[in-house]
Simulated scan of single mutants.
Amino acid sequence: MSTNKLILGVLGGVAIGALAGILLAPDKGTKTRRKILKKGNDYTQDLKNKFEDLYNKTSKKFDAVIDKAEDLATDHSVK
């Protein structure tokens, strides 16, 4: 299983568990809706941050591979 699928699975499970806990808690409907909205926003931001981190790491690795390929191409064309 890839790391991305694992992260998404864990976040999904946490979100479902939090949602179930909020829905089953004995609060008024307005309070419950606010809690759901806040948790949803928190999870959305967390997921966005994780994807941004993944994108940045992947971009850096891709750029390093391109630089290495350009260096190798330059070395072979000089010889």
Rank of each mutant, 00 (worst) to 15 (best):
I66V: 14
A20V: 08
L6S: 12
A15Y: 04
G9N: 03
G21Y: 00
L37M: 10
I22M: 01
K50M: 10
L47Q: 07
L8R: 07
F51S: 11
V10M: 06
K79L: 04
L54A: 14
L19V: 14
D42V: 07
Y55R: 05
N4R: 14
G9P: 00
A20Q: 03
G13K: 01
L23M: 09
V65I: 04
K79H: 05
K39Q: 11
K57C: 02
D53K: 00
S2Q: 07
V14M: 09
L11V: 12
D75T: 11
L37D: 11
L72Q: 09
F62I: 10
D75F: 07
K5S: 12
I36G: 00
I22G: 00
G9V: 02
L19Y: 10
V65L: 08
V78R: 05
K79F: 05
F62R: 13
I16Y: 13
G40W: 02
K35M: 10
D63K: 06
K39I: 15
K50D: 04
K61I: 12
K38N: 06
E70D: 10
L6W: 13
K61T: 10
L19T: 15
A25Q: 06
I7N: 00
F51R: 08
S59Q: 10
G17T: 01
K61H: 07
K39C: 10
R33E: 09
M1I: 14
L11S: 08
V65T: 09
K68Y: 06
K61Q: 10
T58I: 03
L72G: 08
G40D: 01
K31G: 08
M1W: 13
D46P: 05
T32A: 02
K60D: 11
L24A: 15
D75P: 06
T32D: 06
S2N: 15
G9T: 03
L72S: 11
T32W: 01
K60R: 11
V10R: 01
L19G: 09
K60A: 13
E70F: 06
G9Q: 00
D63N: 10
K38Q: 09
T58K: 07
K38H: 09
T44D: 08
L6E: 13
V10P: 04
A73G: 04
M1G: 13
L72F: 12
T74W: 01
G9I: 02
T32C: 00
L72K: 02
A64S: 14
G9Y: 01
S77K: 15
N41Y: 09
T30F: 12
D75S: 10
P26T: 12
S2D: 11
D46E: 15
N49G: 08
G13H: 01
I16G: 10
K5H: 12
I7M: 01
K68G: 02
A15I: 03
S2H: 11
T74Q: 06
K28P: 02
G12V: 01
D53I: 03
L47S: 15
D71G: 07
K39E: 11
Q45K: 15
K31E: 09
A64H: 04
L11G: 03
I16F: 15
G13F: 00
N41S: 12
G29Y: 11
L47I: 14
D27Y: 15
R33N: 08
